[in-house]
Simulated assay, not measured.
Amino acid sequence: MKVENIAIQLYTLREFIRTPADIAATLKRVAQIGYRAVQVSGMGPIEESELVAICQGEGLTICATHEPGDVILKSPEKVVERLSKLGCKYTAYPFPAGIDFADEASVQGLISGLDKSGAVLASAGQTLLYHNHAHEFIRSGNRTVLDRIYAETDPRNLAAEPDTYWVQYGGGDPVTWIEKLSGRVPVLHCKDYVVEPPDKPRFAEVGYGNLNWLAIVAAAEKAGTEWFVVEQDTCPGDPFESIKLSFDYLSKTFVS
């Protein structure tokens, strides 16, 4: 891992990126912490050209985005245009809103839609990823829905953005899933998992929870992961303090 490959998912800082002025101030703080890349998500309105200029000014690469799921499935050409403006190769389908994983037609519609939209992005030299939560670990026959999503799509059309917290929460093993998807995991969401009394799991700063990061990072590097993206859906205090703890852990533990 190189320090340039550690990114922050800006959804973590969504309360601080509502206006262009907020975005500029927040990205300055992100760069001061040491991050050199960002994933764009949860952001208020801003022209792509202005966002690119702010990032370039702070020495930040836009490594990936999350785009609205309905836009990805219904208007993938708009996603291609936006990524081109941002100078970005990767975007992820962020959340299966409106998908009933207990209904075969709904599941099949999602899988087919991802494959078709991914083909549009692939033809433009871009890559569609799937960002999992725990929903996808619902069983569908003798497999999970997440198994089906990757088994029933063309790897050229859909890659993975495994979320380590949600894999664990869903009863999976992050290392096993990364190994299973080797060569198909350009972006990894690094999110730790801790349990508080009496038995409630919550999001934690990377390296401060129960996940085995030595094994996770080793598996990801072997699988060809390009971007290690820190994300923390909720933070116990100041989100900037949380993302610094995560950055410091990853950079001090894994950067060679």
Rank of each mutant, 00 (worst) to 15 (best):
Q126G: 00
E136R: 02
L146F: 06
H131A: 11
P162A: 03
A159R: 12
G172P: 12
E161K: 03
A159N: 11
S123M: 01
N142S: 12
G109S: 14
L146N: 02
L129I: 06
L114E: 04
N142K: 14
D154P: 00
R156V: 11
P162F: 00
I149Q: 04
S140M: 13
S123F: 03
R148M: 09
Y130C: 09
R139L: 11
H131F: 11
T144V: 06
A151I: 04
A151C: 11
A151V: 05
Y169L: 13
A122I: 03
A159P: 11
A105P: 03
L121T: 03
V167L: 15
V120E: 05
H131G: 05
I138H: 10
N142A: 14
R143F: 09
G109I: 14
I111S: 07
G141N: 05
N132S: 00
R156K: 14
S123W: 09
G125V: 10
E152W: 09
G172L: 07
A134S: 12
G125D: 05
S123C: 04
I149W: 04
T164E: 07
G125C: 07
A119R: 11
G113E: 13
D163R: 01
D154H: 05
V120F: 10
A119F: 07
S106Y: 12
G172T: 05
N132M: 00
V145D: 11
E104V: 12
Y150D: 11
D154T: 12
S123E: 15
A151F: 08
I138C: 01
Y169K: 12
D115H: 04
A160K: 03
T164Q: 05
R143E: 15
L146I: 15
E104P: 04
K116W: 00
T153M: 10
I111W: 14
R148P: 01
T127S: 14
A134F: 01
R143P: 00
L129T: 09
P155D: 00
Y169M: 15
E136W: 07
P155Q: 06
H135Y: 14
D147T: 08
Y130F: 15
Q126Y: 09
R139K: 15
I149V: 15
V107S: 11
Y130I: 03
A160Q: 07
Q168W: 03
D103R: 12
S106W: 13
G170W: 05
G125T: 08
H133F: 00
Y130G: 06
F137G: 13
S140G: 09
R139G: 01
G118I: 12
T153C: 15
D154E: 02
W166A: 07
R148K: 14
R143S: 13
L110C: 11
L110T: 08
T164G: 04
Y169S: 08
A151W: 07
W166F: 02
L114P: 13
W166D: 09
A119D: 05
Y130Q: 00
A159H: 13
L129Y: 09
N142F: 06
A105E: 15
T153D: 02
A159F: 02
D163K: 09
I111E: 05
R156L: 09
E161A: 02
N157R: 03
D147G: 10
T164V: 06
D103F: 08
H131T: 14
N157Y: 08
Q168N: 06
H131L: 12
K116Q: 15
T153W: 06
